[in-house]
């Protein structure tokens, strides 16, 4: 029922520096970017991670970007992260950070507030995102204009705590993002559970809606919120043009059988394990991990044990090299 473990031993200096490596995928990316540009590494040696205060390069030759500052004619990293360079612009992408939105990103968010004609949405960003009443699909047809009565019944569409999937539409002058759900793919989420990982681990994919063969749908929000739910057949999603308000803004879950629930838990745990080992997520990787986990014939909860998690990550990283 309950088991006690010890805290891991404090790392001494030697093993700390030994472990400062990237995940192989990420290391590859950086090499590709920078192999012709060894100058940037002058100060940092062969390390791929910066530390705050680390001098990167001369400010005469390069421009400072996000995550850096200039002092004494040197560009200095202000965060721990990976160096990225576009022409003469040097930026450091922090390892642990809030989500930096870009227009067109798919995000999963949670309603925090209902305001006049808009919802405030927590999307793991520095500020709450805004979802305008005019940028959601209203019941009764996609092209319907919003009415005053809609403003009065906003909580029938989304209320506090509701989860939704949306796309970043634009930015306001203060940097807050504006979302929209004007697509049948977007909208309220149900039939599943949320798992949160660092946003840097979600890579840009061709599609962020993933269906695993075990009957589980995944929505990988670029903000690090991942929705794991029961698979819904496309034909069942919505009848062609007929936009069913009942279904889209419903709070009721469908019946979910036991096997699907176990599969959802297993996928969630795999995502947690991968995130705790700092492995970036992709659909193929998840699939491999899921097959491995099923082969082990353990329960879903066993994945959360440290040794099983280590095995899983070791399997994935070796297979991908």
């Amino acid at each position: 029922m309950i088991s006690f473990t010890s805290y891991p031993l404090q790392l001494d200096d030697e093993s700390f520096y030994g472990s400062r490596q990237h995940h192989p995928d990420a290391a590859e990316d950086i090499d590709m970017d920078l192999d012709d540009e060894q100058e940037l590494f002058e100060a940092g040696g062969s390390k791929n991670l910066t530390y705050p205060g680390e001098p990167l390069t001369s400010s005469h030759a390069y421009m400072r970007g996000h995550g850096t500052y200039v002092n004494d004619e040197e560009v200095i990293a202000s965060v721990a992260g990976t160096i990225e360079r576009v022409n003469k612009l040097v930026t450091v992408r922090a390892i642990r950070t809030r989500y930096n939105p870009e227009v067109g990103d798919l995000v999963v968010g949670r309603i925090t507030e209902v305001q006049p004609r808009r919802w405030k949405v927590d999307a793991n960003s520095r500020q709450d995102a805004v979802l305008m009443l005019s940028s959601v699909n209203l019941p009764g047809g996609v092209q319907r204009r919003k009415l005053e009565s809609d403003e009065l019944q906003m909580r029938n569409f989304f209320e506090e705590g509701d989860l939704l999937v949306a796309e970043v539409q634009a930015f306001f002058s203060d940097g807050a993002m504006s979302l929209h759900t004007r697509s049948l793919k977007y909208g309220k989420l149900r039939n599943g559970q949320l798992v949160t990982i660092p946003p840097i681990l979600v890579r840009r994919l061709k599609s962020h809606f993933i269906t695993l063969p075990c009957g589980v749908d995944l929505i990988l929000g670029l903000n690090g919120y991942i929705w794991v739910s029961k698979h819904v057949k496309e034909s069942d999603q919505e009848g062609e043009e007929g936009f069913d308000a009942e279904a889209v803004y419903s709070n009721q879950n469908d019946r979910i059988d036991e096997l699907t629930r176990v599969a959802i838990s297993r996928v969630t745990n795999i995502i947690r394990v991968l995130a705790s080992h700092f492995v970036p997520l992709t659909d193929t990787l998840l699939l491999e991990a899921y097959e491995w986990a099923v082969d082990q014939e353990d329960g879903a909860k066993d994945l959360l044990q440290d040794d099983v998690g280590d095995l899983l990550v070791a399997m994935i990283t070796t297979r991908r090299q």
Binding site: D162, L189, N191, Q193, L194, N251, N253
Partner: peptide, 8 residues
């Protein structure tokens, strides 16, 4: 937490 998550 949303109603759907609670009921799940």
């Amino acid at each position: 937490l949303s109603k759907a998550e609670k009921s799940y």
